[in-house]
Design a protein around this nucleic acid. Sequence first.
DNA 1: GGGAATATTCCC
DNA 2: GGGAATATTCCC
Lengths: 210, 210
Amino acid sequence: MATIAKTSLVESKKTGESSSGMKSPAPFLLKTYDLLEEEEERGKREKFQESGGNDEQRTISWNEDGTGFVVWSPAEFSELTLPKYFKHNNFSSFIRQLNTYGFKKIASKRWEFQHEKFRRGCRHLLKEISRKRSDPSCFPQYLKSCHHENNTEEISNSRLLLVEKNMNLRKEKLELQMQIAHFKNLHVKLWECISQCMAIQQQKKDRKLC
Amino acid sequence: MATIAKTSLVESKKTGESSSGMKSPAPFLLKTYDLLEEEEERGKREKFQESGGNDEQRTISWNEDGTGFVVWSPAEFSELTLPKYFKHNNFSSFIRQLNTYGFKKIASKRWEFQHEKFRRGCRHLLKEISRKRSDPSCFPQYLKSCHHENNTEEISNSRLLLVEKNMNLRKEKLELQMQIAHFKNLHVKLWECISQCMAIQQQKKDRKLC
DNA sequence: GGGAATATTCCC
DNA sequence: GGGAATATTCCC
């Protein structure tokens, strides 16, 4: 059984600036991000030292364009890398966390994962990533059983259900509105771009006419 | 920082006989029980070997009548014993678990804990101990505000209101989604436009060069 | 002590 | 993939 060692990284959890209003990213995300940077760094060092060795024995790395990452060797990754950053050495637990935070597996034949807000060079984006709430229309298990106990409770339960769905819809609405704002912004820029193009062409025409 | 090593004990989790109808005790209880037995055993061995040493350097042991246990040295216990059985070396996390399972601290001046069903020689009793449920009469925090209604009419009225709001939100969401689809469409066209502009300008340049 | 967020495990 | 139980951490 592998040795599980805590590194000083575990402490980095508390570095989120609590004085300012900044929320800090989830420990899992920070660790995974740092892990990628550090493993890549380590890879380079080793390649440099034993130049001539096969440099394709990477364990984990960002993908080409830095929009995701690939675990090249789950076995090695689990045995050696995971316990340096987490309290376990199970690949499946790592995957479970990725799913919890909304990462997607984007290749069928290799362990490549992606999340919109998780990309090379964008450590600051991590705080935008949040855990998926387990379906809010569901109640704690111990409430499920008391659905037919008596009328009042049943009503109040279904009412709670409504309230929750309501909240969820509000949230979704907000997100959509934000998306739209983003689009509008982009639009303005695209129009600027187009009008510039037009202006240039117009200038050229004018010049010809002179 | 201490080294956290998994022992084979971690595996004992799965030994609960699943074929018969027996439920197995929570891992925390089994580990704590085994830990007590094994540390006591270890203490005896060491006392035997270096006879003459002070035998009072126990770290943890059952109390006199075996109805509870005492952590004699929290520091040593945390640093050396905990990581052999758990994925951490924090005394406070251990205490948190004890509280979760309903143990009581029964002495003011030492770390002595007790639970009715946790006693020396009664490993079989462990399965009677269960986690304290966080008060089931409490709802998720975001639901707490809507707890105070009395008569049925009032309830059904507010319920209708909710249903209505809900419907409205759904509608709004749909509209937003349509807007977004529209934007995406426009985007594609704007890009086409831009690339055409670019192409034209390129053509003109090419012509000049000829 | 215990509520609540996050992590890890187990299981479908 | 994800629900749910348990473990660990953080905070009051």
